[in-house]
Design a protein around this nucleic acid. Structure first.
Length: 144
DNA sequence: TTTCTAACA
DNA sequence: TGTTAGGA
Protein backbone atom coordinates (compact mmCIF):
# COMPACT_ATOMS: atom_id res chain seq x y z
CA UNK A 1 0.00 0.00 0.00
CA UNK A 2 2.24 2.78 -1.13
CA UNK A 3 1.03 6.31 -1.35
CA UNK A 4 3.44 7.93 -3.69
CA UNK A 5 0.88 10.12 -5.39
CA UNK A 6 -1.25 12.28 -3.18
CA UNK A 7 -0.70 11.97 0.50
CA UNK A 8 -3.52 12.70 2.96
CA UNK A 9 -7.19 12.95 2.08
CA UNK A 10 -8.10 9.35 2.53
CA UNK A 11 -9.62 8.81 5.91
CA UNK A 12 -10.00 5.10 6.63
CA UNK A 13 -11.48 5.62 10.03
CA UNK A 14 -13.98 7.97 11.52
CA UNK A 15 -11.20 9.19 13.81
CA UNK A 16 -9.41 10.67 10.83
CA UNK A 17 -12.28 13.01 10.05
CA UNK A 18 -11.40 16.69 10.10
CA UNK A 19 -14.15 19.29 10.18
CA UNK A 20 -13.75 22.94 9.31
CA UNK A 21 -15.39 25.62 11.39
CA UNK A 22 -17.95 26.34 8.70
CA UNK A 23 -19.19 22.77 8.61
CA UNK A 24 -19.10 22.66 12.39
CA UNK A 25 -21.48 25.63 12.44
CA UNK A 26 -23.87 24.09 9.93
CA UNK A 27 -23.94 20.73 11.65
CA UNK A 28 -24.25 21.86 15.27
CA UNK A 29 -25.97 25.22 14.96
CA UNK A 30 -23.25 26.86 17.04
CA UNK A 31 -21.85 30.07 15.57
CA UNK A 32 -18.22 30.52 14.60
CA UNK A 33 -18.02 33.30 17.12
CA UNK A 34 -19.11 30.90 19.85
CA UNK A 35 -16.69 28.19 18.77
CA UNK A 36 -13.74 30.59 18.91
CA UNK A 37 -14.86 31.85 22.30
CA UNK A 38 -15.32 28.34 23.69
CA UNK A 39 -11.85 27.46 22.52
CA UNK A 40 -10.40 30.60 24.05
CA UNK A 41 -11.98 29.54 27.34
CA UNK A 42 -10.52 26.05 27.01
CA UNK A 43 -13.88 24.30 26.74
CA UNK A 44 -13.08 22.82 23.35
CA UNK A 45 -9.94 22.51 21.30
CA UNK A 46 -9.22 22.56 17.63
CA UNK A 47 -6.53 20.41 16.08
CA UNK A 48 -3.17 21.88 16.87
CA UNK A 49 -1.75 23.39 13.81
CA UNK A 50 0.06 26.59 14.64
CA UNK A 51 -2.07 29.36 16.01
CA UNK A 52 -3.56 31.94 13.73
CA UNK A 53 -4.19 29.17 11.26
CA UNK A 54 -7.44 27.63 10.10
CA UNK A 55 -9.22 25.53 12.72
CA UNK A 56 -9.98 21.88 12.16
CA UNK A 57 -12.06 19.82 14.54
CA UNK A 58 -12.02 16.12 15.33
CA UNK A 59 -14.98 13.78 15.44
CA UNK A 60 -14.79 13.92 19.24
CA UNK A 61 -15.04 17.72 19.23
CA UNK A 62 -17.99 17.59 16.84
CA UNK A 63 -19.68 15.30 19.29
CA UNK A 64 -18.77 17.46 22.28
CA UNK A 65 -19.90 20.72 20.67
CA UNK A 66 -23.19 19.09 19.71
CA UNK A 67 -23.60 17.86 23.27
CA UNK A 68 -22.84 21.27 24.80
CA UNK A 69 -25.27 22.86 22.36
CA UNK A 70 -28.07 20.56 23.51
CA UNK A 71 -27.57 21.57 27.14
CA UNK A 72 -27.39 25.25 26.22
CA UNK A 73 -30.68 24.93 24.36
CA UNK A 74 -32.13 23.37 27.48
CA UNK A 75 -31.29 26.58 29.28
CA UNK A 76 -27.96 25.85 30.98
CA UNK A 77 -25.20 28.42 31.01
CA UNK A 78 -22.15 27.66 28.89
CA UNK A 79 -20.06 26.67 31.90
CA UNK A 80 -22.78 24.34 33.21
CA UNK A 81 -23.38 22.91 29.75
CA UNK A 82 -19.70 22.06 29.41
CA UNK A 83 -19.68 20.55 32.89
CA UNK A 84 -22.67 18.35 32.11
CA UNK A 85 -21.25 17.38 28.75
CA UNK A 86 -17.95 16.27 30.25
CA UNK A 87 -19.61 14.42 33.10
CA UNK A 88 -21.88 12.64 30.62
CA UNK A 89 -18.89 11.58 28.56
CA UNK A 90 -17.15 10.11 31.61
CA UNK A 91 -20.28 8.25 32.63
CA UNK A 92 -20.62 6.91 29.11
CA UNK A 93 -17.01 5.71 29.16
CA UNK A 94 -17.76 3.67 32.28
CA UNK A 95 -20.95 2.32 30.74
CA UNK A 96 -19.03 1.28 27.63
CA UNK A 97 -16.41 -0.49 29.73
CA UNK A 98 -19.08 -2.36 31.61
CA UNK A 99 -20.97 -3.32 28.50
CA UNK A 100 -17.82 -4.43 26.69
CA UNK A 101 -16.98 -6.74 29.58
CA UNK A 102 -20.46 -8.07 30.35
CA UNK A 103 -22.34 -8.19 27.08
CA UNK A 104 -22.17 -11.84 26.10
CA UNK A 105 -24.80 -11.74 23.40
CA UNK A 106 -28.06 -10.30 22.17
CA UNK A 107 -31.09 -12.30 21.20
CA UNK A 108 -33.50 -10.38 19.02
CA UNK A 109 -37.10 -11.23 19.90
CA UNK A 110 -38.85 -8.78 17.58
CA UNK A 111 -37.03 -7.28 14.63
CA UNK A 112 -39.80 -4.81 13.85
CA UNK A 113 -40.20 -3.37 17.30
CA UNK A 114 -36.55 -3.88 18.24
CA UNK A 115 -37.17 -5.98 21.29
CA UNK A 116 -34.52 -8.31 22.55
CA UNK A 117 -32.74 -10.02 25.39
CA UNK A 118 -29.21 -9.19 26.52
CA UNK A 119 -27.03 -11.96 27.92
CA UNK A 120 -25.27 -10.27 30.83
CA UNK A 121 -23.49 -13.36 32.08
CA UNK A 122 -23.81 -14.99 35.47
CA UNK A 123 -23.98 -14.01 39.10
CA UNK A 124 -24.05 -16.51 41.95
CA UNK A 125 -24.95 -19.36 39.67
CA UNK A 126 -27.76 -17.64 37.84
CA UNK A 127 -27.86 -16.18 34.37
CA UNK A 128 -28.74 -12.52 34.16
CA UNK A 129 -30.70 -11.11 31.25
CA UNK A 130 -31.55 -7.56 30.31
CA UNK A 131 -34.92 -7.74 28.66
CA UNK A 132 -36.31 -5.10 26.31
CA UNK A 133 -39.95 -5.69 25.43
CA UNK A 134 -43.36 -4.04 25.11
CA UNK A 135 -43.19 -3.07 28.78
CA UNK A 136 -39.90 -1.24 28.48
CA UNK A 137 -36.88 -2.95 29.97
CA UNK A 138 -36.03 -4.96 33.07
CA UNK A 139 -33.67 -7.57 34.45
CA UNK A 140 -34.41 -11.27 34.69
CA UNK A 141 -32.70 -14.28 36.22
CA UNK A 142 -32.37 -17.46 34.22
CA UNK A 143 -31.32 -20.98 35.14
CA UNK A 144 -27.61 -21.51 35.59
C1' DT B 1 -14.80 32.47 -0.58
C1' DT B 2 -13.74 31.25 3.95
C1' DT B 3 -11.62 32.08 8.19
C1' DC B 4 -8.55 34.80 11.19
C1' DT B 5 -8.05 38.39 15.27
C1' DA B 6 -9.36 42.43 17.54
C1' DA B 7 -12.45 45.78 18.78
C1' DC B 8 -16.85 48.49 19.11
C1' DA B 9 -22.25 53.11 17.20
C1' DT C 1 -23.34 37.92 21.79
C1' DG C 2 -23.48 40.32 17.21
C1' DT C 3 -21.03 42.52 13.98
C1' DT C 4 -17.39 44.68 11.37
C1' DA C 5 -12.71 45.93 9.71
C1' DG C 6 -8.76 44.45 7.39
C1' DG C 7 -5.66 40.49 6.29
C1' DA C 8 -4.21 35.87 4.97
Amino acid sequence: MKETKHKMHKPHFIHDIRIGIGDMCKITGVTGRQLRYWEERGYIKSLADEKNSVRKYSWEMLYKVGSIKVFIDEGYTLAKAVEKSELREKEMAIIRKFMAANMHGVEITDEEKLYGQLDLGQCEGKKIYGVVDENGSHLEFGEG
